[in-house]
Computed example of a mutant assay.
Amino acid sequence: MEEPNSIIMSTIPKGSTVLITGVNGFIASHVADEFLAAGYDVRGTARSMAKADWLYERFDKTYGKGKFECVEVADMVHEGAFDEAVKGVSGICHLASVLSFSSNPDEVIPPTVKGTLNILTSASKEPSVKSVVYTSSSTAALLPQPNKEIKVTKDTWDDAAVEAAYQPNPDAFTVYGASKTEAERAVWKAFKETKPPFQVATVLPNANFGTILQPGGENSSSTGSWVVKLWNGDASILDFPPQWFVDVRDTAKLHVAALIDPSANGQRIFAFAEPYSWNKLLAILRKQNPDRQFLEDKEGEGEDLCQIPNEDAEALLQKHYGHGWTPLEESLRANTATLKA
């Protein structure tokens, strides 16, 4: 685990407590790991304490007891849901979201927005809070559109997903994209209207590959399980269109940088490393594992041709960690390491 380079001024000094909502998730567990490695204490939230048992086991062993704690927030939509959790924390990373992948927009969009506004409300009532990062998604800017040359800017929003989500029979991926679009937009609306006494940034990751920290996490619905499906010959994953990838460890490091770096205030940070296709992933997996059989290439797959404003994100990685994006080959190797045992 790498420790961030020291910078002249940090919004949150080391030794402070950072709150990470939905801490047992694929990305959130890495965010917690990076903050602990960087010298911060971490308080997580989970829908039940049992979901955090594996985190205590992992973090107590790695960083010592008392550096990590978890509190239960059973329903983030409940008024004041995060009031107790935010007490005494210096920073907040809000990763909890509705991941039911229901195709019913009313079951996904309003609770995602409400939970996000709840964390901001709780933060505004806690004077210790100096910085908040909201984990948005690439889908808040656009859904994958292979073979289309699209220029994405920091002002690009996925209005098409929001509109489509409320049409008859929307697909679950579109509804999820609409929820992240509306939630992130609510963050910036609140930021503009209330001018909070803490800095705010959002991180928009595309498909996250890389190490899965949770035992048994290979069977989750996270994008980290997509590579596992390729490994196991599950062709259903090929239905997802090609898009961009980012190593989950880089996404986590960007959360650290966005929370502690004053220059991140007011910024949308695009965690997009490079485009990928299933055929490209399969070619890498075959090269790395010559004795294993994989799926045949997908015909007529296409590629993602979008232009993404990811330069500031890579600059934050360079500034705080001394490197840019983790290469796709390295990320896949980490993603499959535990599958070879």
Results as ranks from 00 to 15, higher is better:
residue 266 G to D: 00
residue 22 G to C: 05
residue 88 G to R: 04
residue 11 T to A: 14
residue 170 P to F: 10
residue 58 R to S: 13
residue 322 G to L: 07
residue 296 E to M: 13
residue 8 I to Y: 15
residue 112 T to E: 01
residue 305 L to K: 15
residue 181 T to R: 09
residue 191 F to P: 05
residue 69 E to A: 10
residue 254 L to W: 05
residue 297 D to Q: 09
residue 233 G to D: 01
residue 329 E to N: 13
residue 164 A to R: 15
residue 95 L to Y: 14
residue 181 T to G: 03
residue 129 V to C: 05
residue 261 D to Q: 11
residue 20 I to Y: 03
residue 228 V to A: 00
residue 74 A to N: 06
residue 316 L to P: 10
residue 231 W to P: 00
residue 2 E to C: 08
residue 59 F to Y: 12
residue 172 A to P: 04
residue 23 V to L: 13
residue 32 A to C: 08
residue 27 I to S: 02
residue 287 K to Q: 13
residue 279 N to P: 05
residue 2 E to S: 15
residue 247 D to Q: 06
residue 62 T to I: 12
residue 117 L to V: 04
residue 100 S to T: 14
residue 238 L to I: 10
residue 11 T to R: 15
residue 270 F to P: 08
residue 226 W to V: 00
residue 157 W to N: 06
residue 287 K to P: 09
residue 192 K to C: 04
residue 195 K to F: 07
residue 283 A to C: 02
residue 312 D to T: 11
residue 257 A to P: 12
residue 210 G to K: 05
residue 198 F to M: 01
residue 129 V to K: 03
residue 264 A to L: 09
residue 246 V to S: 04
residue 206 N to Y: 13
residue 303 E to K: 14
residue 241 P to V: 01
residue 130 K to C: 03
residue 335 N to P: 00
residue 285 L to N: 06
residue 168 P to R: 13
residue 255 H to A: 09
residue 152 V to F: 11
residue 102 S to T: 07
residue 261 D to I: 15
residue 58 R to G: 10
residue 215 P to G: 04
residue 11 T to Y: 07
residue 304 D to G: 12
residue 310 N to Q: 10
residue 310 N to P: 10
residue 207 A to E: 02
residue 174 T to V: 14
residue 79 E to S: 09
residue 73 V to M: 08
residue 204 L to D: 01
residue 167 Q to V: 12
residue 75 D to W: 11
residue 100 S to K: 06
residue 98 V to W: 11
residue 187 V to F: 10
residue 120 L to D: 02
residue 217 G to H: 04
residue 88 G to M: 04
residue 43 R to S: 03
